[in-house]
Design a protein around this nucleic acid. Sequence first.
DNA 1: TTCTCGAAAATGATATCACATAATGCAGAA
DNA 2: TTCTGCATTATGTGATATCATTTTCGAGAA
Lengths: 236, 236
Amino acid sequence: MFDLPEIPRHPTMTTQEYVHARLRNAIMVGAVQPESTLTIRGLAEYLELSPTPVREALRRLSSERAIELLGNRRISIPVMTAPRLEEILSLRMTLECHAARRALPFVSEVLIDRMREIDDQMDDYVQSREFDALTILNHGFHRMLYMANPHQTVMPVIESVWLQLGPFQRQMIHAFDQFYLIDRHKEILAALRRRDAAALAQAIEADIEDGIGRVGREVLQARAAEAEAAHAADRI
Amino acid sequence: MFDLPEIPRHPTMTTQEYVHARLRNAIMVGAVQPESTLTIRGLAEYLELSPTPVREALRRLSSERAIELLGNRRISIPVMTAPRLEEILSLRMTLECHAARRALPFVSEVLIDRMREIDDQMDDYVQSREFDALTILNHGFHRMLYMANPHQTVMPVIESVWLQLGPFQRQMIHAFDQFYLIDRHKEILAALRRRDAAALAQAIEADIEDGIGRVGREVLQARAAEAEAAHAADRI
DNA sequence: TTCTCGAAAATGATATCACATAATGCAGAA
DNA sequence: TTCTGCATTATGTGATATCATTTTCGAGAA
């Protein structure tokens, strides 16, 4: 019924935090699809917990706009439409460029090196085709840059946007070779080394566009064509 | 102990929603100060409810970064520091300019008229010195513009930023005459009438800077001076 | 007076229960 | 076959109870 990738549970974690982290991770990597019917009690049973912490975790995820609590006892992953995708992509570009620009003064050579290490690791994971890990690493690459700014407040917002793009992650990484993504990371690193804010913003926008924009649109188009075909068959 | 302005409760609302809305409103207008010690049970008793819906409301507010659940049984309003204020202000400008730019194609004359009506209403409330209502109206003015875009996804993020600036609202509105704010609204309306994206962004940035940026910094400086004085007295 | 320690109280987290309501499925009618 | 009602089941919500842990506060020591 569910297939939520397991995550480590630190002993200090509360149950509610664990559920939240596990669901969040599942949504982030695209393991929860919009079709799946979620219920508080169903999840609680699956996780062998009481409904209380599950309900709290779901409410938090709803506040992060990862899921929607419909109120008529239905919980859903928001359906992606073409205009919504455009809005989210453009918001993501605005936010990440903002974060990058404000992080730039705090970027050090060791930070760039650590980012490069993540990027190298990603090259390995592309080889071994570990797609979920690749998504996590890609986020980690970006997060490391934006968190360089010690006073940043934008990171949770960016994570929320990543969550909303989660349902596309698997399709995206499956659909394409990673060459685009990787190349753009190299461009980001080059811009960082030159402390070139304009080039950095451009590289980030390109990374987002190549990474998820292009594929997202293709997925939606394919879906629309499919629906059209079904509709046509209906009329016959 | 608490002084949470009452809000209407629609019959369809769940208890948890009501608590969330009431706390959110209180924080938004600055009725909850960072010093106030919040507890789940204390709030539940004050509102004559069980702890369950209160805790859920608090968790949601925590996800919206209106409050912090410290984990050691302390709930706090995040303390504002100078660098944090700069981050939030700059994020708010980025977000609202983004939202305005994407709303502009959907702006109609009737929308501009309705925004002008809100602005006129604000002039009245300035006279009668109803500061909390003024804050609500100011947010409504901005929200009306950004929501013109039917596919927007940025509004919840902006509301979260407003929440984080909430503790400043009362101080800000008390500290200054509203002339700056009102004037900037007139500039925003003028830019909208001309469909001038650049002027619109500039007016919004100025509105934020004059409305809360300048005052926020003054409040922090005054607070720092006070702390310094206390520290000096300590040494004597 | 100030600090330390420990008992008492308060608090958050979770499970469980009761209740109202929405979803589901089946029987009978059209 | 398809639609309509109704009984059954499932589900979300909120209150309560319990437990572990933290905070509080006062008594005694320094």
